[in-house]
Design a protein around this nucleic acid. Sequence first.
DNA 1: TACAGTTAAATTGTATAAAATTTAAAATCT
DNA 2: AGATTTTAAATTTTATACAATTTAACTGTA
Lengths: 146, 146
Amino acid sequence: MFSLHQLSLDLYSSSRLLIQLIQSILKEHNLTYPQYLTMKVLWEEDGILVKEIGERLHLDSGTLTPLIKKLERVNYVKRHRGDSDERTVHVELTYPGKSLESKVKQSLLPLEEKLNEVTNLDLAELNHSLQNLLESFNSLKNSSQT
Amino acid sequence: MFSLHQLSLDLYSSSRLLIQLIQSILKEHNLTYPQYLTMKVLWEEDGILVKEIGERLHLDSGTLTPLIKKLERVNYVKRHRGDSDERTVHVELTYPGKSLESKVKQSLLPLEEKLNEVTNLDLAELNHSLQNLLESFNSLKNSSQT
DNA sequence: TACAGTTAAATTGTATAAAATTTAAAATCT
DNA sequence: AGATTTTAAATTTTATACAATTTAACTGTA
């Protein structure tokens, strides 16, 4: 039996719980979870636009602008307006920002291990289903916009 | 292949996206999603303690106290200290709070329908896996506390 | 080329989250 | 009983989320 309420509550709870676990590790690097996500995007593609970060994380400038400004204050990134299009803002990693990648990756490994031990789920399979679900939500959102 | 990062991002994204969909419906009743969750708990068991609401939703008083005070201001609930234990606060539905239940349930039905149509996933099955995952996170959290 | 429409960030306002501390009351211990 | 510890809410602080609006810059077109 399926209930929208139960699905939403389970997504909401498990999301927040996992983020708490991850954040308890990230705090040794002085990063919050959304800040880590933003850094992760930049580690994959440096110099990207705020808008593009937003597309990958489903976040808008209302959330990202202050977050990226915070990352700039701690000297992990630099922001600069686009040359050809002055509306855009490019975000670039600094040297400290770049060197953070391997440290963060290392410190998250134990949690990944433990999760694999503690659960009897096929996490790769579950992850695949979640991406599928995400697609469904996206199409519902887009269809309700028109 | 399984990655902790990917799982967390997918949980985080799908959770927020689904909440946006639900919230766009709830706004006609002037409820946010966490406010709806709190009302839902009360519809299941009226007069419950703040602490008990927190246990069911994995939220603490830092979040719940102002939220419930808001529900009190719009006259959906009443708060009163316990008789035998004055540390506790019971939350009780008012008449408007009670009569909200059927209205909210009705207005959420179409979304539930649409989601079932748009996805080819077995949502009951996925939900079951999520509850399993939630349990894993809970045991990881508890084991890291000691 | 003026200008209406669109777009990218930023800003504003409201509502969470959650860690850490505080307060008051209850439970436990000696 | 009196002191210590624990517990339930509330409070404080920092950091998201996100809707709605604003600002500045770009685009298409008459």
